[in-house]
Amino acid sequence: MNRFLLTSVFLAAAVPAAYATGQATQPAGWPPLPPKEAVSNVKLVEPHLHVNRAGKGAPRIALTFDACMGKTDPRILSTLVDQRIPATIFVTARWLRTNPDALAVFLAHPELFELENHGQNHIPAVDIPTKVYGIAAAGSPQAVGQEVKGGADAMLAAGIPQPRWFRGATAKYSLSAIAQIRGMGYRIAGYSVNGDSGSLLPAKMVEKQYASAKDGDVIISHINQPTHAAGEGVAASILALKAKGVQFVRLEDIPEQGDDDTTN
């Protein structure tokens, strides 16, 4: 499965199918759906991110997980804790409201988990009225700012330190929104390996994706789908990478380089 198809599946998983086709009622707190004729020519980018390579010796890989909404996958969380695997977790305000027990585990292990900002309502950080894979974008600079600030405010209220990274829903951005978010003091977290395509891949395909990771890669997966087979593959893949001697790092641990001025 090529990277474009994997990304498409990942993005399609972000919202219910009826909403993605514009036939559902807009969820409370989300921006209004743009009219069908509001097609924009704005350039959207999907930045890559790599950490500095280790070079000689054990390869260096950064595991990142999105906690978009819903619940928490205990298969992944227990593997990270039991195996002492560091990871960067991107949380939304929506996820924080319904997962106090998982948050307590993250906060109890600051040596393992770096918690970062995934936004307030899990909407794309694009500052004009448009859709990204059927999902209504924030639609204005003000709404982009609220998505970022609202996520950070919820994190601080939950006892999480001030976030320094932001990853928006769908992982696509307008260049002007990137500049705005950078101006708010954030680096923007892309990725280089799509580990689970929005938690939709079967376990064996997840394992293949993880096995493809190389020195310096940043893997994105999801930790909020406990009923999906993908979580089984993520847990197994973490163990397989550890057995190969991979050096796991968090984004805060090591210098990194992102496309589209997301980290410079």
Rank of each mutant, 00 (worst) to 15 (best):
T25P: 02
I178F: 15
R75K: 10
N99G: 12
Q162C: 00
I89G: 01
A213Y: 05
Q257A: 14
G22L: 03
I181D: 04
G150C: 07
G139E: 05
D82N: 14
F106Q: 11
D260E: 14
T25H: 11
A12P: 00
R97L: 10
A87S: 11
E232Q: 14
L6H: 08
A14G: 03
P124F: 00
G258Q: 08
L112I: 14
I76E: 01
K172Q: 14
V148N: 10
G139V: 05
Q162I: 00
E232D: 07
G231C: 02
W30K: 08
N52A: 15
H228Q: 14
S199M: 11
G183T: 06
H48E: 01
H118W: 04
Y19E: 12
P161Y: 14
N117L: 09
G233M: 07
I128L: 15
Q146F: 13
Q257K: 15
R187F: 08
R53D: 07
V132F: 08
R75E: 09
A243H: 12
T262A: 11
P47H: 10
T92N: 01
D259K: 01
V193S: 08
R53Y: 10
Y186N: 05
P226I: 09
T21R: 01
V246A: 09
P129T: 06
A58E: 12
G70Q: 11
A235N: 07
P202M: 04
W30L: 09
L115M: 13
S40I: 11
Q142F: 03
K56V: 09
